[in-house]
């Protein structure tokens, strides 16, 4: 309770601010509309009208909530109008990119830990690769993959998601694989362990806490990548595409609903990774 109360208070504060802002931002439109119809509105009438516009500048929370609920439940989940369907498409790309990013990150980390040459040659470029705004590459990756005859919309999105998510995994795994200290390495040598045994029995298990910590960052990055990948392609599926359409056709409610659906998806993904981490820690004998 002690931890929940402050969070709830702040949340209530945010919602209250949001309502105030929605009245303030939407008021102009109400007054303009009233002036055009030649009627006058009192303050309380104005407040009521700002809460139920069709194209509000800032929709109040209950409108966004209703739109989100409608998008999630009002039609079958396989319908193209359902946010569940769009969310699933984004989720698919996120997961594909996440898996690719983990494979790339772990593979590169192993190569870097075992080979000095790779470490010195590739690591600086891996760091620089993250200062390149990936979104600059996004439209090109999409065009390229369609030119190379890959019809699936999944592949370019997954590549962008992987590009964003491999780096946290790489950094975490390098730290983790190097975390066994000299004493432990010496002990393995005393037992005459081979290089492979050394890796499987000592290095890999001791890297797990670092691995899961970086997974949490990586999954969030992968979702951002998947959404960004949906933006410039003129894509028609996915939460990013819903936002783009909402922006192009002037339907702000669609935009807000897609935005919150994306936030919901992010929350669920982070929760799942957190649970996985807990499970793995328990199996490895950590307390709690």
């Amino acid at each position: 309770m002690k931890r929940v109360l402050p969070v709830l208070t702040v949340l209530c504060g945010i919602v209250a601010l949001w309502y105030l802002a929605s009245v303030w931002l939407n008021a102009t439109w109400v007054y303009d509309q009233a002036a055009r119809d030649g009627r006058s509105v009192t303050f309380s009438q104005m407040v009521v009208e700002t809460q139920s516009q069709e194209r509000p500048l800032l929709p109040p929370p209950h409108q966004v909530g209703a739109e989100l609920w409608k998008g999630l439940t009002a039609q079958a989940v396989t319908s193209k109008r359902s946010l569940v369907w769009h969310g699933y498409k984004t989720f698919e790309a996120t997961m594909a990119g996440f898996a690719l990013g983990i494979a790339l990150g772990v593979g590169l980390a192993v190569a870097i830990v075992y080979s000095r040459t790779v470490d010195r040659s590739v690591m600086p470029w891996a760091i620089i690769s993250q200062t390149v705004p990936i979104v600059a590459l996004a439209p090109m990756i999409i065009v390229l993959s369609s030119k190379m005859g890959i019809d699936s919309k999944l592949v370019p999105k997954a590549i962008i998601a992987a590009y964003l998510s491999f780096f946290p995994v790489l950094v975490g795994m390098i730290k983790g694989l190097r975390s066994p200290d000299a004493m432990q390495l010496d002990l393995m040598r005393t037992w005459n362990a081979s290089g492979l045994q050394n890796f499987l029995v000592l290095r890999l298990p001791s890297s797990m806490p670092y691995f899961f910590a970086s997974l949490k960052v990586a999954i969030a990055a992968a979702l951002v990548g998947a959404i960004v990948g949906e933006l410039p392609s003129g894509a028609t599926v996915g939460l990013g595409a819903r936002m783009l359409q909402g922006s192009q056709y002037g339907r702000p409610l669609d935009m807000w609903a897609a935005l919150f659906a994306a936030a919901l998806l992010a929350g669920v993904l982070i929760l799942i990774v957190g649970q996985l981490e807990r499970l793995a820690r328990k199996r490895m004998g950590a307390a709690g």
Binding site: V7, V10, L11, I14, K216, V217, A220, L223, V224, I227, V228, L239, G240, M243, L244, G246, S247, P252, M255, W256, A258, L259, A262, A263, A266, G267, I270
Partner: peptide
């Protein structure tokens, strides 16, 4: 809340 929001795909607010 800040930690959670930092992990959200905030680029989505761009169209708004």
């Amino acid at each position: 809340i800040g930690n959670f929001v930092a992990a959200l795909p905030i680029v989505g607010v761009a169209p708004i």
